[in-house]
């Protein structure tokens, strides 16, 4: 099995395009050898989520340092609201309504970070923030927080709510026997990271970033794009709904009339 894995990953490495993209503000080498098993993931009518596998080799000959793999979805604006009671105070009967909205100008729509031991033992707090190795570090506040509100509470709530939806994930140890999802290191510096992509994860362009940390410092990294795209009927329907939305509405109504007509004819009493 192990030999097969090594052979497979080497084959992938040879075939992998040299698409190392430069990330801003760093003197770190972009030469970490890594590749993804699925560069394109297709969403058809039977789609129910997927797995993304990142292979690679630790370039350090003596195998020093720790590999961290991050799978990122697109950065999008997000809003977090806090429920409040109306009327507030001691009135015995009140409604809980959404209030006090706080906007984030960008927050990752999907975020998974994989390491073979807790991230804080691998990277310094400064590095975690600088290289955005945590979803909270990637979320940028846009609007002022309402008086009495705590910005970090809103940030924590955003991360917690997205984590509950399976959109933010942390793998802090190698997968156990029978588990799928996590970072496994093999002898010879080979590693394999598997991320579970839930069906509700947005359909967009993703990036798999691989980092090598040693003594809390980033040594090397690699960025690989992964495309998730609709195909077939799913694609046709979605394109129609977004590009020619009035026609899409008319088609839906026509189908509704057809269904109603069909039922009336089928069940007509003689």
């Amino acid at each position: 099995m192990r030999r097969l894995l090594i052979a497979l990953s080497l084959a992938l490495l040879v075939g992998a395009p040299a698409s190392a993209q430069q990330q801003p503000g760093s003197d770190v080498a972009d030469d970490l050898p890594a590749a993804v098993a699925e560069e394109q993931i297709t969403v058809s009518s039977t789609y129910g989520g997927s797995y993304i596998t990142v292979f690679g080799v630790n370039p350090d000959r003596r195998g020093r340092g720790d590999i961290v793999v991050v799978l990122r979805g697109p950065n999008e604006p997000a809003t977090v609201m806090r429920k409040r009671r109306v009327p507030d105070g001691n009135f015995p009967f009140g409604l809980w309504i959404n209030g006090d909205p706080v906007q984030f100008s960008e927050a990752p729509a999907f975020f998974a970070v994989l390491s073979s031991r807790p991230l804080r033992e691998i990277a310094s707090a400064d590095s975690i923030w600088r290289y955005q190795l945590d979803p909270a570090a990637s979320a940028r506040l846009a609007s002022a927080v309402p008086s009495g509100g705590d910005p970090s509470a809103y940030r924590a709530a955003l991360v917690r709510l997205r984590a509950e939806q399976g959109l933010y994930q942390w793998y802090r140890r190698p997968p156990r026997e029978g588990e799928r999802g996590g970072l496994t290191a093999y002898p010879g510096g080979l590693f394999r990271a598997v991320v579970r992509l839930p069906a509700n994860a947005p359909i967009a362009q993703y990036h798999a970033d691989t980092y090598l940390f040693r003594d809390g410092r980033l040594i090397s990294r690699q960025r690989i794009p992964i495309t998730i795209a609709r195909i077939g009927v799913e694609r046709t329907i979605h394109d129609l709904a977004t590009n020619v939305s009035w026609l899409y509405g008319v088609v839906t109504v026509m189908l509704a009339l057809l269904a109603g007509w069909g039922a009336a004819v089928m069940f007509r009493r003689p």
């Binding site: 809003t79 809980w96 909205p101």
Partner: peptide, 15 residues
């Protein structure tokens, strides 16, 4: 759902 104090005070929303 409207009157019971919610267990989770924060909600994702807007947009």
């Amino acid at each position: 759902d409207l009157v019971i104090p919610p267990a989770e005070l924060y909600v994702l929303g807007g947009g």
